Amino acid sequence: MSLDTVVEDIREEAHARAEDIRSEGETRAEEIESTAQADADEIVADAEADVEREIEQLREQRLSSAKLEAKQKRLEARRDVLGEVREAVEAELAALEGDTREELTRDLLDAASAEFDEGDDVNVYGRDEDADLIESIIDDYDGYEYAGEYDCLGGVVVESDQSRVRINNTFDSVLEDVWEDNLQEISNRLFEQ
């Protein structure tokens, strides 16, 4: 074996070894590249899923916000309508005249009188426009006196120092009680769905 042959054998072996190393390197590089691509694909998929979740969450928030705003506007509109109905009822009560006003005022005074003892000095207050009406009604009661104006739609406020009792039987107080007791029914009738 000559030196040239040995050199050639070493060279061939070195080339074969280099080819094996290069082949292993390429295989390893392909594995690394494949792993990196898989990792990149997973990162992209996760990012896309995160973006989709955020979009869905944002859409749900906006939808929920829009629904809440619409509900608030409906409630405001209902409140406005109920306020208008209440004002219309108050105007009707204030405009009552003649026998109807006298009958209601007399009934309210009778109901209040049940709270006072016989012989009590009783002061009766009412709407300024009803002063003559109240004075004519209290002529039927002993110890009752018209004591002046009370800011109301009608009816009476009755009090006595002896009993330390004050009864508010105004149209306003009766309306307030009826309104509160029947608000749900009123609302249901106005806003049947």
Rank of each mutant, 00 (worst) to 15 (best):
D107E: 11
E76Y: 10
D117I: 00
K71V: 09
S113R: 12
D80N: 10
K73N: 05
A131I: 07
Q57G: 15
Q37G: 00
D46I: 12
D117L: 13
E52Q: 08
A40D: 10
L68H: 12
K71H: 11
R62I: 15
D128V: 05
Q72H: 09
E102K: 06
Q37D: 04
A114L: 15
D130C: 02
V81Y: 03
D41Q: 15
E90Y: 08
A91F: 11
E48C: 00
L68Q: 12
Y125E: 06
E115T: 11
A112S: 15
A38V: 03
D139C: 01
D46T: 14
R78V: 14
I134M: 07
R79Q: 12
D39I: 06
Y141E: 03
E42R: 06
K67M: 08
E84Q: 14
S113P: 02
S34Y: 10
V122D: 06
I43G: 02
F116L: 11
D50E: 15
T35L: 14
R127D: 04
E69S: 11
L63W: 04
R79W: 06
L75R: 12
A88V: 03
V85M: 09
R59L: 07
V85E: 04
L133I: 01
R106L: 07
A45F: 00
G98A: 07
D46Y: 14
L58P: 00
D50R: 11
V51C: 02
D117H: 10
L68R: 15
D39S: 03
I137W: 01
V44D: 15
G98R: 07
Q61V: 02
V124E: 06
L109V: 02
D110F: 02
V122A: 05
D99E: 15
R62A: 13
E60L: 04
A88C: 04
E87I: 08
E90V: 14
K67Q: 09
